[in-house]
């Protein structure tokens, strides 16, 4: 595939690391003072989980150029396993989250080994098919309680002393996990590994001729993306205290694509902006029924036709910065 995916002017943009760091500091401060502003913390926690999910997704699509249309399977798998570990096995939250995340990592490895075999458009269809396979598995498996989902998950004490049932404590734990994971993703993007990924996205043939084992890099990126998506899923389950089929449904895979596309594909902050906007829209339009889906469809169409850089991508392009 002569790939031109990723963001439309990839490679032309000068990296401005200092701007990215400045934005990170502003974001961290904003998140820390949110509880003082009267903004509903539950909303922010939920949005942060989705923001992490979107960042994980962007790590793969934005930097490898391959569209996974099945990322909900990682969000949902980690969610179910974490929920089961916390509720049935009585794991403390840190261990439950870890178990869920590890489950998604394993699933990511297996799914990646199958899907990496095809390129481009087939990759999207294969990941979609694998996610649907997992959906039907969870629909029928006993431990997920099918349509009812796993309810009333105990939040417990993180590391034995942080009471997660207190909303302020939970909030700061979620913020801490999000910021750490965000830094990790940023580090991966800026590592030699990330540079190789970008070179594969830009010109796969040349990367091969330089001796890089392209498939191995793609698989590694896919597993990393799946693992971090799993972390988002496990965290989300601890926040919401329930795990349901919504998280493994194909519409969730579509939603994360929407977040990343709206915010800015292949940008550092785009997925965060996209996630907050999409979640906010769902909150405000909760009473509008199916019109939310129609609006999401319209955003897809408008973004693809006129706005392919996404919000952050457009801003970055305007100021000739990388964000």
């Amino acid at each position: 595939m002569t790939s031109t995916a990723g963001h439309p002017d990839a490679g032309l943009q000068r990296r401005t690391i200092s701007d990215e760091i400045a934005v990170f500091i502003v974001m961290a401060i904003a998140l820390v003072i949110v509880p003082l502003t009267g903004l509903y913390p539950y909303f922010v926690m939920q949005a942060l989980c989705f923001a992490l999910f979107a960042c994980a997704f962007n790590l793969f699509l934005g930097y490898s150029g391959l569209l996974s249309f099945g990322h909900a399977m990682f969000l949902g798998t980690a969610g179910y396993i974490c929920a089961h570990a916390a509720k049935v096995w009585g794991f403390p939250p840190e261990l439950a989250i870890l178990t869920g995340t590890a489950a998604s990592a394993v699933l990511g490895l297996l799914a990646g080994l199958v899907a990496i075999r095809r390129q481009g458009i087939y990759f999207a269809m294969i990941t979609l098919g694998l996610a649907q396979l997992m959906y039907f598995f969870y629909l029928q498996a006993k431990f997920t309680h099918g349509e009812d989902g796993i309810q009333g998950i105990p939040q417990g004490f993180l590391f034995g002393f942080l009471d997660l049932s207190k909303s302020t404590t939970l909030y700061y734990v979620v913020v801490a996990v999000f910021l750490l994971a965000f830094l990790l993703i940023w580090r991966i993007i800026n590592s030699p590994f990330g540079e190789v990924l970008k070179s594969i996205r830009e010109n796969e043939q040349r990367a091969i001729s330089l001796g890089y084992k392209v498939d191995r890099y793609k698989l590694m990126a896919f597993v990393l993306s799946a693992t971090l998506a799993g972390l988002a899923g496990a965290l989300k389950v601890i926040v919401a205290q329930n795990a349901s089929l919504t998280d493994v449904h194909w519409s969730m895979s579509g939603e994360v694509v929407l977040m990343v596309l709206l915010g800015g594909l292949g940008t550092v902050y785009g997925p965060v902006v996209g996630a907050f906007l999409v979640i906010a829209m769902q909150q405000y339009l909760a009473g509008a029924g199916q019109w939310v889906v129609v609006i999401q469809g319209v955003i897809f169409v408008v973004c693809v036709l006129t706005f392919r850089r996404g919000i952050v991508g457009e801003i970055a392009h305007l100021f000739k910065r990388s964000l």
């Binding site: 569209l67 694509v257 889906v293 129609v294 469809g297 319209v298 897809f300 169409v301 693809v304 036709l305």
Partner: peptide, 13 residues
Amino acid sequence: LLLTFGLALIIQG
């Protein structure tokens, strides 16, 4: 793929 996915969401919605 994304454009036609968006169209599918609109039509079904």
